[in-house]
Nucleic acid binder design. Sequence first.
DNA 1: TTCATAAAGCAAACATTTTGCGTTTGGTCG
DNA 2: CGACCAAACGCAAAATGTTTGCTTTATGAA
Lengths: 186, 186
Amino acid sequence: MAMREGVRSGGRSARVQEAVHQAVKELEQLKTREELTVPQVASRAGVTPSTIYRRWGNLAELLADVSLERLRPDGEPPDTGSLAGDLQAWGEQYLEEMTSAPGLRGLNDVMASADSERRECCYRYSESIMATLCARAHARGEPAPSVDALVDGIIAPMTYRLLYDRETATSARLSEWIARTLVAID
Amino acid sequence: MAMREGVRSGGRSARVQEAVHQAVKELEQLKTREELTVPQVASRAGVTPSTIYRRWGNLAELLADVSLERLRPDGEPPDTGSLAGDLQAWGEQYLEEMTSAPGLRGLNDVMASADSERRECCYRYSESIMATLCARAHARGEPAPSVDALVDGIIAPMTYRLLYDRETATSARLSEWIARTLVAID
DNA sequence: TTCATAAAGCAAACATTTTGCGTTTGGTCG
DNA sequence: CGACCAAACGCAAAATGTTTGCTTTATGAA
């Protein structure tokens, strides 16, 4: 009875998804984005191309789907004892991830996807991390800006620089963004 | 002698480029991005597909190339008498452009391009506008932040919200970004 | 176990992309 | 000005990728 929209969750369907994702991850390391094709992925995953086309639509969506997983934060950000410290620590690690070849490709794959929901998903990841750090600050009795202010003051310039002018996405600048954002607490 | 890299600038080459760009602009209004194909564009431009493939590589790059033109600022931003006013006026107009269907598509096309140079180009457009407004402020004897501070404080959150959470890219928020950025002048 | 149907396989039809080769045409230099 | 070289284009065949109709498999619920 709990069947809604007729989506299959377990068994073969899940196995195929897993195999295809795995195949993409493996092939990404052997080939550039340009020379990666759906038939290749299908063949390595032991699946027919039509399965991939019917499920993901095209290569861009498949890649975005796989990359979104990689972009999802996997653990709690480290607690350094202060909001500024937490932001710096988390930001530096994020910058490092995103300036690496796979991180950059992941970012691009998500940006290239026609499905805007995926980008919103990235946004929500960042938002939830900022909320976590904010909550921590409050628990410590530390004054903290709103989550929106953190997103606008730190996430936005960091992401903007990563996307538009990679060279300037540095941890030195990160410090400035943090400082500016934290002095402006109402 | 002024021939560098052997790129053709005039004559047929330019005519073909113009025809292809024109064809893309026309077809964009009749079809969605999904149903637009290289052969279609070629046919409407009176050109063979192979010409397009050899020159642009693929549809994504062609669309990004065309969209980059649209994104280029075409005139001087209006002078309102104050830096805050200039930023608000320019920003509102930019937001309006970018939340429209063609503006959004243009933004997406550039983001989907594999060529990062195009994104850097967008960055430079914004940077030069901020520089213009800064120079104006200086001429008036008004205190003004650095261009980088304006980019990080205003362009970045505006672009970030446009890309990741369109609903929140509003002129009300723009006012906040401007206020925050201008009070922080060193 | 049985049943209904979502999802996968298969293969043919279809569309797009690549490529080799001959032709046109800018830009430069004698 | 006229000849030359190479870039860019056209054409068409070949290779490759994508879509689609139909059949088969196997999940989840009764």
